[in-house]
């Protein structure tokens, strides 16, 4: 302990609170520390609970007669609810998730980067100070609102343009992209702002235009932050639930086109937990297996993001 504890003999005016014996104080200090430590332990407990629940229920799922690990991981048909024989191959759900995520990122990443560059490098200070908080507030709009927007605005718009189904992956993907836009933009902008002024000044001194300074110097310098922002946005898109549950439909098929309906892992879980599936059926436990898959995917994205940030961070002083 490096703290200095006043002895009881010094004037009590100098101590905070009433004077107590040194021993009593030490006991209460360590008591408080252990309470705070147990608060910290709670987060570990949460992680353990997640791992235990997902593992035991997934094991129980694979223990059923209808399924095997091989079928789950290596076959491409997902048909747990309808039909004579049930099929549990995870890939159609992963395909649906990928489809929605890719469409979302095609929209969110370029737009987010360009908007971030505009706000950080080009916009006058006043414009920036207004737009940044607005974007941050929009990042707090509940996802069910974006889902409603997809269903009532984007889908009719798409159906007017081309041959789209009432529920389709494109509509959901675009809505997820709009949802991710503020996240990508805000975090990339922070990364760009962290690049020191001297780098820009150097680029100008070499005769570069603003484009040269931004694209060839500042953006590469901020790359670790930008990649971390992108990975976070991808993780968000993969785990997004309400938008896809509302707008993407409920039919999981491998290689389905973006104009048709599709089902993501999260949307399948919604279908199971909202439907009248019995609590002990194989379909019910399949939701846990899907959740475990989703957890593994998002966890690896988070860890990669963390690694990227630590590994490629450029420190300027």
């Amino acid at each position: 302990m490096t703290t200095i504890t006043p002895s009881a003999s010094t004037s009590s005016d100098l101590t905070i609170g009433r004077p107590r014996s040194r021993r009593a104080r030490r006991v209460s200090e360590s008591l408080i520390e252990s309470v705070l430590a147990s608060c910290g332990g709670f987060s570990i407990l949460t992680t353990i609970a997640i791992l235990v629940v997902l593992t035991t229920e997934t094991v129980r799922f694979f223990g059923q007669d209808e399924v095997s690990v091989g079928e789950f991981l290596f076959t491409g048909e997902w048909n747990p609810l309808l039909g004579e024989t049930k099929h549990f191959g995870i890939w159609p759900l992963i395909w649906g998730t990928m489809l929605v995520t890719v469409i979302a990122m095609l929209l969110a990443l370029p737009l987010g980067f360009l908007t971030a560059i505009f706000l950080s490098e080009y916009a006058p200070r006043r414009v920036r100070s207004v737009l940044k908080p607005v974007l941050e507030i929009l990042a707090g709009v509940p996802t069910v609102v974006y889902g409603f927007f997809a269903l009532t605005v984007i889908t009719p718009g798409l159906m007017a343009i081309g041959d789209f189904n009432t529920y389709n992956a494109t509509s959901a993907g675009l809505a997820v992209g709009i949802m991710c836009l503020p996240i990508v933009c805000s975090m990339s902008e922070d990364a760009l702002q962290a690049v020191p002024r001297s780098l820009r000044a150097g680029a100008y001194a070499l005769g570069g235009t603003k484009f040269d300074a931004t694209v060839k110097v500042v953006f590469p310098a901020a790359l670790s932050g930008v990649i971390a922002a992108s990975l976070l946005a991808i993780a968000r898109a993969v785990g997004e639930t309400m938008i896809v549950a509302l707008a993407a439909g409920g039919l999981a098929r491998l290689w389905s086109s973006p104009t048709e309906q599709t089902q993501t892992m999260t949307a399948y879980m919604v279908q199971i937990f909202l439907g009248d599936v019995s609590n002990h059926g194989v379909e019910y436990f399949s939701a846990y297996a899907v959740a475990a898959t989703l957890f593994v995917i998002t966890l690896s994205l988070t860890i990669i993001g963390h690694r990227v940030r630590v590994r490629f961070r450029e420190v300027y002083e």
Binding site: S43, T47, I50, L54, G239, M269, V270, A287, F295, H306
Partner: peptide, 17 residues
């Protein structure tokens, strides 16, 4: 590290927990 990982877990997984 655990806390930053927990922040990235999709909310529906928390629902299942």
């Amino acid at each position: 590290l655990n806390i930053s990982n927990l922040a990235g877990v999709p909310s529906i997984v928390y629902g299942i927990i």
